[in-house]
Amino acid sequence: MGLQVKDVVLELGDGDQKITALDHVSFGIAAGELLAVLGPSGAGKSSLLAVCGGLRHPTSGTVVIGDKELTAMHDSQLTRLRLKSIGFVFQQSNLISSLTSLDQLMLMVHLGGHRPTKADRDHAMSLLRSVDMAHRANRLPDQLSGGERQRIGIARALMTKPSLLLVDEPTSMLDRVRGRQIVELLSEQCHQHQVAAVMVTHDRSMLDAADRSLHIVDGRIQEAAVSATN
């Protein structure tokens, strides 16, 4: 199993301001499987990503990636886990503005405390080729279109060969055609690299690219909405 979420509760705020962002959420996904998470704004989709990515400690419940239990980890352990086992794909603006496309990927090697080798560079270039961005390897983010930035983001997320991919609204800044291309690319990469992936989206038209989907409302998974889409 790539990701196992069991009975997770996430409460935010204090006193009268306290809200339950995730309310006894449980699900699992296998390696090579793409799960789409849908829901209205404020339903808890981003909170779910934050908990799965070790960016938030749940109030209760467990999150297991591979054989690693996140909820028992300290912040520094979570940071290491994010680097080695989790790939994030954010909205299009989340590339480092001073880094070229290739450097966005090489950054992941540097964050691991290693001096990049030729093998690292070859791996980065092969990932750029796989997202059809090798010809833009030396471009800075502001020289790329929205779709191209998302492709770079996907390649960067795969650079450390993670076991879990967390994808945040990948199509929110793109037109329908490009959004479709990106989601299909994600699905393809997810299957090719055998990575478990959770994709938060508000766009129902993208559901057919996912293997499964679940609908979340007010922090709870709607049982009837958990479905196989392919």
Binding site: R80, F90, N94, M108, L111, G112
Partner: peptide
């Protein structure tokens, strides 16, 4: 701030 947060989310430590 946004980029530093991004690097941290990607697995970059504060020490780095």
């Amino acid at each position: 701030t946004q980029e530093i947060g991004l690097v941290k989310a990607l697995g970059g430590s504060s020490a780095y």
